[in-house]
């Protein structure tokens, strides 16, 4: 017979043991010291699935203390099932406060969105990253992409960018537009919409990127130059929501979700759930808006 005692668990504060936390912390510091460079780390298994935010969770749990207030969003929403799940786990394991209020959070863990509201120097945005290697779609081998980064050889990614332009008439090729960080490393901003990319540059907050499955951490420190890749004559542009207003708030100038009704008619809603709440209640929080070049 197995005694029940054998299965009784007592977890360390914030779930991860201190030895592992130290490793994540050392690697995170190095990531901040070399902006845009992907630092390998051990990335132990977590009790949630690989690809469901383990990298973000490693970072958040290595950062969090009892005085922190944590916000978790997925696709811009606090309500997403996976966001609820991660938030509950962090709250239970770290005994910290949680919030939906973007401004009240000290740590925000997010998947696929940067909040609309401007983040401050007291805040850290942790982004979950499925594929940290921006060059993976042009070179499948890790050993070779390492060398390409070492030599700052980014010719192949420029070619795909040009090809995307020829095919679609825009540089924008889905989410996660490649960025040049501090003039040296080409990196992925994680699959955020282009709308969010300009907000990575010269921001007040610290951005940390965790890819648990691929075992990589990268970072963008505050006040760091981040340039979306673009050509002199073909410029990077963010999504345009022309003539579009949010059907819940009547407002515009935010990243919008398109919602289909029963009869397939389409309407739009502001994607960032907390931002939507705030614009409906007023006053509208401050935003950094990017103006597309002509």
């Amino acid at each position: 017979m197995i005694e029940n005692l054998r299965f009784q668990e007592s977890f360390n504060y914030a779930y991860i043991d201190e030895f592992t936390k130290k490793e994540i912390r050392r690697k995170t510091l190095k990531a901040v010291c070399i902006p845009g460079y992907q630092v390998p780390y051990a990335s132990p298994e977590m009790p949630i699935s690989r690809g469901w935010g383990t990298g973000g969770l490693h970072l958040t749990l290595s950062l969090v203390g009892p005085d922190d207030t944590v916000k978790v969003i997925d696709q811009g929403s606090d309500a997403s099932v996976n966001a609820c799940n991660l938030r509950l786990f962090i709250k239970e394991m770290a005994k910290c406060a949680v919030t939906f209020d973007t401004a009240a959070a000290t740590i925000i863990q997010s998947r696929h969105r940067v909040p609309e509201e401007i983040l401050t120097e007291k805040q850290i945005l942790v982004l979950q990253v499925p594929q940290p290697e921006v060059l993976r779609r042009v070179e499948r081998h890790e050993a070779k992409t390492r060398i390409m980064h070492a030599e700052a050889d980014y010719a192949k990614i420029w070619v795909t960018l040009y090809e995307a332009y020829v095919r679609s008439g825009t540089l924008r090729n889905g989410a996660g537009h490649p960025i040049l960080v501090n003039g040296r490393y080409v990196a992925t901003p994680s699959p955020i919409p282009s709308w969010d990319v300009p907000n990575l540059s010269m921001a007040r907050c610290l951005y940390l990127f965790g890819a648990g499955r691929e075992k990589r951490i990268h970072a963008i420190p505050p006040f760091t130059r981040v340039e979306p890749l673009e050509f002199d004559d073909i410029r990077f542009k963010v999504e345009e929501f022309i003539g579009v207003h949010c059907s819940a708030s009547g407002q515009d100038k935010a990243f919008m979700d398109q919602i289909y009704a029963e009869d397939f008619s389409r309407f739009w809603v502001i994607n960032d759930s907390n931002f939507l709440d705030k614009v409906r209640q007023g006053p509208r929080p401050s935003q950094r808006l990017f103006t597309n070049p002509e």
Partner: peptide
């Protein structure tokens, strides 16, 4: 998991 932001892009 939902991918509507990326899918929309």
């Amino acid at each position: 998991l939902p991918h509507y932001v990326t899918f929309q892009a």
